[in-house]
Write a protein that binds this DNA or RNA. Structure first.
Length: 360
DNA sequence: AAGATTCTCAACCGCTCCGGC
DNA sequence: CGCCGGAGCGGTTGAGAATCT
């Protein structure tokens, strides 16, 4: 037995809204508000529409200060950065772009921006720009999606992975830090490069993240490693340490975006690929393992091992719930569904030395 | 000029989340 | 604690517009 429909489907009008309907809905909401009950609203104002339809119409079209079309380059960058980082959480992305609706952004991404970016990739390919990187990302992303692979990724995850690999270069105009948090760009000594086992510490004044110098992750019990990776920033597993992990000081963040506060008690990170290090056999193999089998060399074979969730697109492996990138709790406003991706405890996380806000 | 194809975007559908009971 | 119902979200659809052949 299915769920009861939210309204009498036989007696509701579908399709495009007429100017009269728009006027009725707008006038009513402007005078009375939604009353916290969209389902009852159409009956109150004599509209033969489903409550959900009214809500959508209001939010996406009639609401004041809605912008349509004409996305700026800056908006493009923000959308792209956030998409790579958090995926298709359009409502969250929309919350960062005043006047934009999730529907608009979703449409814009699907119809234009994605093509624009993929077009750039083709362009780069044609120019011979880093062909191996592009090809490799394509090849193993395609491989991930092959039939018969129980760990096949969604198109979205593959897309984001490809985009991340393509766009993640530090000097790429779509680089996350370049665009979202320009002052946060962790170049230079903020980039922790190639430290396999020793202490990893950020420079003075920055949040210190150390891999336990006395006990490498490889030497730890697998269960400890899993726990450490999930919750404890003080130790990093080798596969993360062997990449370039960008760290920054949230106190120094000045975000151009609404809601990104310098006092926010959380931070984000990403793995980038300076020096084309991502093409190194080890790292690519590790990543491939991760993507194909839900594990990597640094999480070898233990049932409790979990793939790193440094890229959100990895979360689809291993049944891990949402949540890879930390965001300030308040940065997405009321609309965000904070509970679904582990940003609700950032104060505690930070106070207690948590670095990455994973759900557990 | 006309038919075919592609693109755009408003709207719908179905699902999950969450609060109230 | 489980159920119910509304809100919200993301994926998908389809009609109309734009472009191509």
């Amino acid at each position: 037995m299915g769920r009861a429909p939210c309204c009498d489907k036989a007696n509701v009008k579908k399709g495009p809204w007429s100017p009269e309907e728009d006027a009725k809905l707008k006038a009513y909401i402007e005078e009375h508000g939604t009353g916290g009950n969209w389902i009852a609203l159409p009956q109150k104002i004599g509209l033969k529409r489903c409550g959900k339809s009214c809500r959508l119409r209001w939010l996406n079209y009639l609401r004041p200060n809605i912008k349509h079309g004409g996305f700026s380059e800056e908006e493009d960058n923000i959308i792209c950065s956030l998409y790579i980082s958090i995926g298709s959480r359009w409502s969250i992305i929309a919350a960062q772009l005043p006047g934009r609706t999730d529907n608009d952004i979703k449409n814009y991404w699907n119809t234009r921006l994605k093509k624009k970016l993929l077009g750039r990739r083709k362009e780069a390919q044609n120019r011979g720009f880093s062909p191996s990187n592009i090809e490799e990302s394509k090849n193993f992303a395609n491989g991930m999606n092959c039939e018969g692979s129980s760990q096949g990724l969604s198109a979205s995850a593959i897309e984001r992975l490809q985009l991340h690999m393509q766009l993640g270069r530090p000097h790429n105009s779509f680089s996350f830090f370049n665009n979202l948090w320009p002052k946060f760009h962790p170049l230079g000594d903020r980039i922790l490069q190639g430290q396999q086992n020793g202490a990893i510490s950020a420079d003075a004044g920055l949040v210190t993240v150390q891999q336990n110098p006395d006990a490498t992750a490889a030497a730890l019990e697998p269960s400890q490693r899993a726990t450490i990776f999930t919750h404890n920033p003080n130790q990093l597993p080798p596969c993360m340490a062997s990449n370039n992990i960008n760290l920054g000081d949230p106190d120094q963040i000045t975000s151009p975006l609404n809601g990104f506060s310098s006092s926010s008690s959380s931070m984000a990170f990403s793995i980038e690929q300076p020096n084309e290090s991502f093409n190194s056999g080890l790292q690519l193999a590790e990543l491939n393992d991760l993507l194909l089998y839900g594990k990597s060399g640094c999480f070898d074979g233990n049932a409790t091992d979990q793939p790193p969730r440094d890229l959100d697109c990895f979360r689809e492996m291993g049944g891990i719930k949402e949540g890879a990138v930390c965001w300030p709790e308040d940065c997405f406003g009321e609309k965000s569904s904070a509970s679904s991706w582990g940003i609700g405890q950032t104060d505690t996380m930070f106070d207690e030395g948590y670095m990455f806000g994973y759900d557990s």
